[in-house]
Design a protein around this nucleic acid. Structure first.
Length: 601
RNA sequence: GCUCCAGUAGCUCAGUCGGUAGAGCACACCCUUGGUAAGGGUGAGGUCACGGGUUCAAGUCCCGUCUGGAGCUCCA
């Protein structure tokens, strides 16, 4: 995206193409009500209220008609109109009338705050037979849009609520895109296809990493051995890193008494996104939607001195949230997932340094995996919402600490209202999937509220009782979502240390199988994960199959290798390292694995 | 949750006008023992997602449910 996309020619082309789409729609379905049609990052959309569902034929017709309109050389003209004139023109177009009213009165948000000044005039933009209420700008003539460089993006209409409000009319949205040259369009469409091929739901299925069962339930992933191996490897690594950094393991159960969540303040706010309570002996239990209350109860189980702090409790804790069915998505949005959770209990003096140490740990995790394509977001309260607990002073302190830490660490970040947790502000690390959808992974949250609500304390140096501050943090966020993003990041070709199968042994003929088994015994002793392909297939077929699984090292062995006590090593990158003494291969593989290296040799 | 689309073998898909189901891959067995991107043959595998309806007859048409997909909304 250019630096000033909104000033670019591409932006005007896309905006103008959206108007042409609306014109074509009104020609196809004259009763259509038109809503809005803005440019977006990779194209544009237009929302319509239609009397019937659209068909693929409709979309093809509209696309063809759009191209024809472009070739007809219609100028774009603009004129100023009064609100009354605008209303007269758009009689029978309720969405436009609502926009006209808002422009005249000045836009007001849901809380009654003015977000735009009242306007005495507004502008109409016209091309050919179509006029739209629009601030522009547009290209000068439809012939400035290349008909061979536009496309309806999905040959399938999408639903969208009027003004993004699920309580209002649902409209039909058509996405399209436009470029300056057909090469750029083809390139874009090609990249979209490539991205879909990398989708973790497809790659994960093909690699046998996970599956879903209708009987187990939607949004509840089942990890197959290969996926569980990858996940376990990540867990063991992070567990070790955390222990080096002063964390202590804790383990807590999957359910907890509902009173825990009433005390946390969490139950009333998020009641609708939880599984229903479990009734047992006149008590109610919740499948835990978060781990913090359990960890807090461990903190509270002993008298704490300032000398004990920081206390850092870490657990790979599985939580359950009742997500809306339409939001479930592969591994990246599920109903049961494991958080690489930790809760730090610190003195106010320790907060800043501990926060920075946590951010450093998260950066170390991302760097090791080569994940660089993320943004950092400081989420603070929406000042107009009532869905938060606690007092203003604590919220200010917490947000100030987060922002100060980011500045001191030179971490580029945005500050966004309404993105806080209900108990405190947070720093989130957000990644995009192959289709540019945003997913929050790592998170660090500063919390003065739960320590107060649970009456946590420690004995200070002067003997007084003081309240600790909590830091909630999860570098991966959830193992499920993190692995989903990793699959797409690596397109299934994981670094050797994470690969479920690191070496595939390929005996050239049956008589080499015993030698392969000897080799296997040595690999096993060396801690290298392997499989032997003992199928009756020819070596070429074994190699082809292994390539599809992105197995890092292929060890081919025939007479020559057996006689030499060697293996012939081929990398998944197709590089042929030739014959190597087995011990040399093992040493090389161990080095690559221990270094968590990206390269294989 | 909402709108729209889809569901046929383990996977990817074909199946015309309504006339009782097919291919490739994978799997099993046989032949082939081959040195770096898929050798050949044979076979097994199906409640056409599930339930109901229309019909002499339903994979095909209609209704409902479930599951998946796109988008929206939501997301501790």
């Amino acid at each position: 995206m250019p630096e000033h996309y909104e000033d670019s020619r591409l932006y005007r082309i896309r905006h103008s193409t959206a108007h042409i789409m609306a014109q074509a729609m009104l020609e196809r379905i004259p009763e259509a009500k038109i809503a809005i049609g803005p440019p977006i990052e990779d194209g544009f959309y237009y929302d319509f209220d239609l009397p019937r569902p659209l068909t693929e034929e409709d979309l093809n017709w509209i696309e063809t008609r759009m191209k024809a309109i472009m070739r007809e050389d219609h100028p774009y003209t603009v004129r100023e109109v009064s609100p009354d004139e605008a209303r007269a023109f758009f009689k029978g177009q309720p969405y436009k009338l609502e926009l006209i009213d808002d422009l005249q009165n000045g836009r007001v948000d849901d809380n009654g705050n003015r977000i735009a000044e009242p306007a005495d005039t507004m502008t109409f933009w016209t091309q050919d037979t179509f006029t739209d209420l629009c601030r522009g700008p547009h290209v000068e003539n439809t012939n400035q849009i290349n008909p061979d460089a536009i496309s309806i993006t999905y040959k399938m209409p999408a639903g969208a609520y009027w003004r993004g409000d699920e309580k209002r009319q649902q409209l039909t949205r058509i996405y399209g895109t436009a470029f300056e040259t057909s090469e750029e369009l083809q390139d874009y469409l090609h990249r979209l296809e490539e991205a879909k091929r990398r989708d973790h739901r497809i790659v994960g299925e093909r690699l046998g990493l996970f599956t879903f069962s209708q009987i187990v339930g939607k949004g509840l992933p089942l990890w197959k051995p290969a996926g569980a191996t990858l996940r376990d490897t990540l867990e063991r690594w992070l567990r070790d890193v955390q222990i080096e950094n002063g964390y202590e393991p804790v383990v807590t159960p999957h359910i907890g008494n509902i009173d825990l969540y009433k005390t946390s303040g969490h139950y009333p706010y998020y009641k609708e996104s939880q599984y229903a309570p479990i009734d047992v002996d006149d008590e109610q239990f919740l499948l835990k939607p978060m781990n913090c209350p359990h960890h807090i109860m461990i903190y509270k189980s002993e008298m704490r001195s300032y000398r004990d702090l920081p206390v850092r409790y870490a657990e790979f804790g599985t939580v359950y949230r009742y997500e809306q069915s339409g939001e479930l998505h592969g591994l990246t949005r599920v109903r049961g997932f494991t958080v690489d959770d930790a809760h730090l209990f610190v003195t106010p003096d320790q907060l800043l340094e501990e926060f920075k140490a946590v951010v450093r740990l998260i950066q170390y995790v991302f760097n090791t995996l080569g994940l660089t394509d993320f943004r950092a977001r400081v989420g603070i309260r929406d000042p107009k919402s009532d869905k938060y607990v606690g007092n203003d002073a604590d919220w200010e302190h917490a947000a100030a600490a987060i922002i100060q830490a980011c500045q001191e660490m030179d971490l580029p970040h945005t500050v966004e209202e309404g993105e806080a947790a209900f108990y405190g502000p947070k720093l989130d690390f957000i990644f995009r999937d192959v289709l540019k959808r945003n997913w929050q992974l790592g998170t660090v949250q500063v919390d003065y509220n739960l320590p107060a609500r649970f009456e946590l304390e420690y004995v200070a140096a002067d003997g007084s009782r003081q309240q600790p501050v909590m830091i909630h943090r999860a570098p991966f966020g959830s193992l499920e979502r993190f692995v989903g993003i990793l699959i797409e990041h690596f397109d299934g070709a994981f670094p050797a240390w994470l690969s479920p199968v690191q070496a595939l042994l390929i005996p050239i003929t049956d008589r080499h199988v015993p030698y392969a088994q000897e080799v296997a015994a040595k690999l096993k002793a060396a801690g290298i994960r392997f499989e032997i392909d003992e199928s009756k297939n020819r070596m070429q077929a074994k190699i082809a199959a292994a390539r599809e699984r992105h197995i890092p090292w292929l060890l081919i062995m025939g007479d020559r290798d057996q006689q030499a006590g060697a293996v012939s090593v081929r990398l998944r990158t197709d590089e042929d390292l030739g014959q190597m003494p087995l011990d040399d291969f093992i040493a090389m593989a161990q080095r690559v694995i221990n270094d968590k290296a990206m390269a294989l040799g």
